[in-house]
Amino acid sequence: MPRDTAYHGALGDAFAAHAATGAYNAYIDRPAMLDLAGDVSGQRVLDLGCGAGLYAEALLERGAAVVGVEGSAELLAHAKERAGERAELRRHDLELPLDFAADASFDMVLCALVIHHLRDRAGLLAEVFRVLKPGGRFLVSTTHPAADWKHFGDSYFSESWVDLHVRDGVPPIHFQRMTVEALLGELLDAGFTLERLVEPRPVPELEAIDPEAFAKLSVRPSFLAVRLRRR
């Protein structure tokens, strides 16, 4: 299983700890994705790259039936601790076909902060299209190209694979940079229709907890999030 696809070992454990309360995950990406999800009561949802189970837990609380897949054994263990038997959780490499899922078997697929790690994105997008019901929703979030450009300091149009060092003693996060044009092009070419695109800001709850982070993250982009439909 490629080390650059899932967060293995110490990186998986570190990410699980950070994602629960960290500003980027807990106060920017997760609220934005759940807002895009809207009412999921009674729906069958596939959480691709479910990580530590935080999105799955929120979707379960909203009445969804959740299937979560994750390539990292460490993160899957955290997800099982969080969701228990309420969700169907399985270890699966997202570079491979979703052979456990039947055609048109999900109402919604959620892919939060995962797609930029994948080498065979076209393969995964074809699989998502296959397992979604006609009219089903596909939610995707990824790093904001402008944030990557500012951090790495080279061409905005770079599509290079990069390593983002987040903490001493923890392996870097490995991902491919994409422009907005490239991201949307791949999604539309896969047959999806774009419904909404957002550049999430931190939710107001962060200001009371960490006013400095709230002020900083309110004026610069972190992520892009989109909601699409299967034709």
Rank of each mutant, 00 (worst) to 15 (best):
Leu94Ser: 05
Arg130Phe: 04
Ala77Gln: 12
Gly136Lys: 03
Ala146Pro: 00
Gly84Trp: 03
Cys111Met: 15
Thr143Ile: 11
Leu89Met: 08
Gly84Ala: 11
Met178Ser: 06
Asp163Cys: 07
Ala147Val: 04
Gly123Tyr: 05
Glu159Asp: 14
Ala87Phe: 07
Phe129Leu: 10
Leu124Glu: 00
Leu110Thr: 15
Phe157Val: 00
Lys133Tyr: 04
Thr179Ser: 14
Arg167Gly: 03
Lys133Ile: 05
Ala83Val: 15
Trp161His: 12
Leu139Val: 06
Phe152His: 02
Ala146Ile: 15
Gly135His: 08
Leu110Lys: 07
Arg167His: 11
Glu81Pro: 02
Val109Glu: 06
Lys150Trp: 08
Trp161Lys: 14
Phe152Glu: 00
Arg121Leu: 07
Ala102Phe: 05
Ala79His: 11
Pro97Tyr: 14
Pro145Thr: 03
Ser155Ala: 14
Pro97Lys: 13
Asp99Ala: 13
Met108Gly: 03
Trp161Ala: 12
Asp163Phe: 04
Val140Ser: 10
Ala101Asn: 10
Phe138Ala: 03
Arg90Pro: 04
Asp99Ser: 15
Ser158Asn: 10
His144Tyr: 00
Asp120Asn: 12
His174Trp: 01
Met178Asp: 04
Leu132Tyr: 00
Leu110Asp: 09
Ser158Cys: 07
Thr142Trp: 01
Trp149Gly: 00
Arg130Asn: 02
Thr179His: 02
His78Gly: 00
Asp107Asn: 14
Leu113Val: 13
His165Gln: 05
Ala79Ile: 12
Ala83Gly: 13
Ala101Pro: 07
Val166His: 14
Leu110Val: 15
His165Thr: 03
Leu98Tyr: 10
His116Arg: 06
Thr179Cys: 02
Leu110Gln: 12
Arg121Glu: 08
